[in-house]
Design a protein around this nucleic acid. Sequence first.
DNA 1: TATAGTGTACTAGTAAAATATAACACTAGG
DNA 2: CCTAGTGTTATATTTTACTAGTACACTATA
Lengths: 124, 124
Amino acid sequence: MQFDDKVPIYYQIKNYLYHEMLTGQLTPGAKLPAIRQLAVDLTVNVNTVQRALGEMITAGIVTSKRGKGNFVTTDTARLAQLKEQLTMEQLERAYEQLHALNLTDDEIIAGLKQYIAQRGQQHD
Amino acid sequence: MQFDDKVPIYYQIKNYLYHEMLTGQLTPGAKLPAIRQLAVDLTVNVNTVQRALGEMITAGIVTSKRGKGNFVTTDTARLAQLKEQLTMEQLERAYEQLHALNLTDDEIIAGLKQYIAQRGQQHD
DNA sequence: TATAGTGTACTAGTAAAATATAACACTAGG
DNA sequence: CCTAGTGTTATATTTTACTAGTACACTATA
């Protein structure tokens, strides 16, 4: 995994795992990779993984069972809420940043459409 | 000024100053506030301001004149290019983040529109 | 020439993130 | 009971952003 050195690694790990849950790589109730395994996969220290998981546990997204492993919550409503929340956060941040660049609402929407269209020609 | 502690302060200062330039608070050729003054205004250390300015100077957006001050470039093409670049970076990041949350292209656009509409009712 | 205002540079110290390493606690299965 | 696999906790160390303080260099102006 590749990290952006502008933001803490533990924070990026959290987002990475959320992503896995929301795209179906990790379904509700699924067992997460072992902490030590995650640390190896992400070439990161165990404590750093632990810190990311700690916040997810606090947030009620992950359940920890000593000796067994970490599991995605089976509370699908909680997961849906998480997705909603993360989406909103992203939209808000993007909007504010673009607005700060002196773009109008319409320009922001047009810009996004154009970006997606352009991207469609190159990727996927 | 309020900082997000997830990203380096010097980086946020740079974005703040770019913002000032692109919204006309700082016009081409204008003199920036003195480094020490900026440090006071932003309640931040001189060196931190200096680091932000250093990158802007390297990028050719700001010209430094010893004993006189720092000035916004008069190269309006360079400023336009900066705006284009920053806009693209924001769009790309936002798109990728939302895509990672398992939203389709259409959902991303719809989500943004909805967010803006919603926001319009509350703000400004 | 003197002084105030400016940018530049250097050294030292602090705080937080991340690492390295190790020990401890629980669970399942032979 | 023992062992392998798991989560949990703790300590020391390294790295980096940031701060603090100081000194130096250049410019304009009285």
